[in-house]
Structure formats: C-alpha cells, structure tokens
C-alpha cells in the first residue's frame, strides 16, 4: 500500500506483548503459582482482590489468579496440540494433493468434509461416545484445522512446483519426496506459520466454548471456559469471577490475531489477508 513510512509492524509487537502478558504467567504455572491452584480454603472464600490474592478467591476459597494461570496453560496446550495435529495431518495431505491426477480431487473432498464438521459438533459426538477428555477435545479442534493447512500446503506447493529450481532439482535426479521436503516445504514455511498463528486464535475460541459447554477437558483440570461457566451465577456478588476468565481468552485471541497479521505483513507483504 502507498502509505508514507508506515510504523514497522506495530501489530507484530503488540501481539507479542499481549501474548507474553498471558502466556508467561501461564508457563510459569508449570513450576510456580502464588497459591496451590486446587487448595480449598473455605474460611477465605470470595475474597476481593488484594495484594495477597491479586484477583481474589473463588467460592471454594481458591486463589483465582493461580487457577487462571493453570487454566491458561491447559487451554494453551490443548490448542497447540490441536494445531499441531491439524498441521501434521493437513500439510502432508496437501502436498500429496498437489500431485497431478485424481489425488488432488480426493484431497479437496476430504478438506470439504473436514470443514463441514465444526469443532463443536465433532466434540459433542466424541464426548457422547467416549466421555469428556483432553484427547477428544484435541481431535475435535484439530480435525477442523486440517483443511486450512491442506489448502495452503497444496496451493503453496502448486505455485512452487512450476519454478525453475524445482525443474533443476528434478533434472539432478532428486526424488519426489526429497523435492517436497527440501524445496517446497521451506518455501511455504512462512505462510504456514502465519496460518498456525491465526488458527491458534480460532482454536482458543473453540476450546473456551467447548469447556464452557462441558465438552472440553474434564474437571478438576481448570480450564478458562469451565471456570466461567461454573461461576456464572456469581455475576452479582463477584462479577470478577466471570469477567476475568473471559478476558484472558479474549487477550489470548487478540494476541494471536495481532501476531498473525504482523507476521504476515513482515514475512510476505504480497499476501492477501485470509481472514
């Protein structure tokens, strides 16, 4: 665009900052939290925020900040696993689909099918079949992510495969798989990274929604959506209990979106925004 001296990737920085704000305490919770997140202390229930309890305590006397830290880590790990699953299945399928012939059509059909099953429907069926569980949640969110990775990998591969250096590699006798790994993948790495970041935002929203409905990870593992659902009736006497977990989800999503947009601008300015 014809903008005079635009600020250098402000959204990249804003996104990184916001994500750090949310994810650093979350990562820290793996080794340290202000209070044990599950420690019940009924004598000190529903305390207002103070220096001791930064976000107060919940109806069971548990430290809200500690629980949110752990919940963010749990939600974040589920989302990361789901994206990894989407990428691990989607990228090879997409590269395969770049091959000429009926393979491409079949791969695109699978992509259509995946898109037709939003995470909530898959999760609902899986939970009904297996009960709640982390695996069901990861699969449900991951499956919906497969098509996007497939399309991008296939599109990227198709555009790269026509270039001269591929022909050169072929002439040099490199095998098909080797070409895909050595030449195609590095060339679409940037766009895949952008996709993963943006998909993480949608995954965070899905995860929160699933655990809000009770279809996500099972208790007593704290998760952001379920903390909100559990304390929803507290909206009068302790609104912070309802506001805080939602705000963390929103920050997580905002951070991922900003980071994704920023990465895209930086890595490949010619890319049109996907969403």
């Amino acid at each position: 665009m014809r903008r005079p001296a635009p600020p250098r990737h402000p959204s990249l920085w804003a996104g990184t900052l916001i994500l750090a704000l949310v994810l650093v305490p979350a990562a820290l919770s793996a080794v340290w939290t202000p209070f044990p997140p599950g420690a019940i202390d009924i004598a000190h229930r529903l305390l207002s925020p103070s220096l001791r309890h930064v976000l107060g305590t919940d109806p069971f006397g548990r430290d809200v900040a500690s629980r949110l830290m752990v919940a963010t880590l749990n939600s974040g790990l589920v989302c990361a696993a789901a994206i990894a699953l989407g990428g691990l299945v989607g990228i090879p399928l997409g590269l395969l689909g770049a091959a000429p012939g009926w393979g491409g059509a079949l791969v695109m059909r699978i992509a259509d099918l995946g898109l037709a099953f939003p995470p909530l429907l898959t999760a609902a069926m899986l939970v009904a079949a297996e009960g709640t569980g982390i695996a069901a949640e990861i699969v449900a969110i991951g499956a919906f992510n497969v098509p996007a990775f497939m399309r991008i990998a296939r599109g990227g591969a198709l555009s790269v495969l026509h270039r001269d250096f591929i022909a050169a590699a072929r002439v040099a006798g490199r095998g098909r798989v080797a070409i895909l790994l050595e030449h195609v993948l590095p060339n679409i790495g940037a766009i895949l990274l952008v996709q993963a970041t943006l998909a993480l935002a949608i995954a965070a929203l899905s995860e929160a929604g699933l655990s809000y409905l009770g279809l996500g990870m099972p208790p007593p593992l704290p998760s952001l959506g379920r903390i909100l659902a559990d304390d929803q009736a507290r909206i009068f006497d302790a609104p912070l209990l309802v506001i805080a977990p939602g705000a963390v989800v929103a920050l997580l999503v905002l951070g991922c979106n900003l980071l994704g947009d920023g990465l895209r601008d930086r890595l490949d300015p010619t890319l049109a925004p996907v969403r």
Partner: peptide, 22 residues
C-alpha cells in the same frame, strides 16, 4: 474491530446480560 473479533461469543453474551439485563 481487532478487540471485538477476540471476544468469545459466550463471554460477550454474559457481559451483555450483565449490562442490559441485570
């Protein structure tokens, strides 16, 4: 727009209830 895009719809729902209904 970035901010609104990041709001989970169920949380938005709860906030709207808080403001407009309660």
């Amino acid at each position: 727009a970035q901010l609104f895009k990041a709001i989970p719809d169920f949380w938005g729902g709860v906030l709207l209830i808080l403001l407009f209904a309660l």
